Simulated assay, not measured.
Amino acid sequence: MKKILLFSAFLLTGAAVAGGGSSVPRGNTIAAIVANDPNFSTLLSAVQAAGLVETLNSAGPFTVFAPTNAAFAKIPSEQLNAILNDREQLRSLLLYHVVPGRVTAAQVVNLSSARTANGSDVRISRMNGNVMINDARVTRTDIRASNGIIHVVDSVIQP
Results as ranks from 00 to 15, higher is better:
I30G: 12
A31I: 03
A32K: 01
A35D: 10
N36Q: 08
D37N: 10
D37P: 03
D37V: 04
P38E: 15
P38I: 09
P38A: 14
N39I: 08
S41F: 12
T42R: 06
T42K: 07
L43K: 03
L44G: 11
A46H: 00
A46R: 02
A46Y: 00
V47C: 08
Q48Y: 04
A49C: 09
G51Y: 04
L52V: 01
L52E: 14
L56E: 10
N57A: 09
A59P: 06
P61E: 12
P61M: 03
T63L: 02
V64R: 02
F65K: 07
F65Q: 05
A66T: 00
A66N: 01
A66P: 04
A66V: 00
P67E: 14
P67C: 06
P67Q: 06
T68Y: 03
A71W: 05
F72L: 02
A73S: 10
K74D: 15
K74N: 14
I75G: 13
I75H: 08
P76N: 15
P76A: 15
S77H: 11
S77M: 11
L80G: 11
L80P: 09
N81G: 14
A82N: 15
I83E: 11
N85S: 13
R87I: 05
E88V: 07
Q89P: 10
Q89E: 15
Q89I: 03
Q89N: 12
R91A: 13
L93C: 08
L94T: 02
L95A: 10
L95P: 13
H97S: 03
H97F: 04
V98P: 15
V98T: 04
V98Q: 03
V99K: 00
G101W: 02
G101S: 08
G101V: 01
G101I: 03
G101C: 07
R102A: 11
V103Q: 07
V103P: 10
V103G: 07
T104L: 15
A105M: 11
A106M: 12
A106I: 08
A106L: 12
A106D: 15
Q107S: 11
Q107I: 06
V108F: 09
V109C: 09
V109L: 13
N110R: 08
N110E: 15
S112F: 14
S112P: 12
S112C: 12
A114W: 03
R115Q: 14
R115I: 08
R115C: 09
T116Y: 04
T116Q: 00
A117W: 04
A117H: 08
N118K: 00
G119K: 07
G119D: 02
G119A: 05
S120M: 11
D121A: 14
D121Q: 13
D121H: 13
V122G: 12
V122Y: 10
V122P: 14
R123P: 12
I124H: 04
S125G: 11
S125A: 03
S125L: 00
R126W: 10
R126V: 11
R126A: 11
N128W: 08
N128G: 07
N130Y: 11
N130T: 06
V131T: 06
V131R: 01
M132N: 06
M132D: 09
I133C: 09
I133L: 07
N134C: 09
D135P: 13
D135I: 06
D135F: 11
D135E: 13
A136S: 03
V138A: 05
V138S: 02
V138Q: 00
T139H: 05
R140F: 14
R140S: 15
T141K: 00
T141D: 12
D142C: 06
D142N: 08
D142K: 01
